[in-house]
Amino acid sequence: MKETLRYGFILGTICIVAGGLLAGINFLTKPRIIAQAQAEEESALKEVMPEGESFEPAKKENGVIYYRVRDKEGKYIGAAFKASGKGYSSAVDTLAGMSPDGQIIAVKVLSQNETPGLGANVVEPPFTGQFAGKNIQDLEGVQAITGATISSKAVIDSVREKGKEIFELIKDEK
């Protein structure tokens, strides 16, 4: 019994010291981690809406559904939204920018874990570039990558579906 207590005490001490140390490091790094995450999101949003200056999240219940985008003069120029589809071996997350009349401005794949050299090519401009200028109602012209139909479809279908949904929401906005 005494032995057990001693073991517990030693392990407990080590845990308390470790916990204290981690709390200290966390205090030091947390602000930077949050800032990094924000900067990253900002730059991704800028990439799909190059004209945009302010990105105001449109929230509903417990999350951001899309971002209202305004340019330098404060004019409303469209929405940016995230879409997620199931690819060949992973979930493919995409960020897309759309003008108020439903035209896609740019598409960027945020995260994926598809087959390197094949499905993973959905992040490359030859594929994502095809979206620019197409209307959300008609994405037929976007060609799937040869040999990577499933990964390509994940992006195309998820953007189309989510885009139509967001389009219904924003078409009356100014």
């Binding site: 845990c15 470790a18 140390l21 490091i25 790094t29 930077r32 981690i33 990094q36």
Partner: peptide, 17 residues
């Protein structure tokens, strides 16, 4: 516990910088 502590430190630093 010792190892996990160091790993967590590394992870936080990597995330921040």
């Amino acid at each position: 516990v010792v190892i996990a502590t160091f790993v967590t430190i590394v992870e936080m630093v990597l995330k921040a910088y």
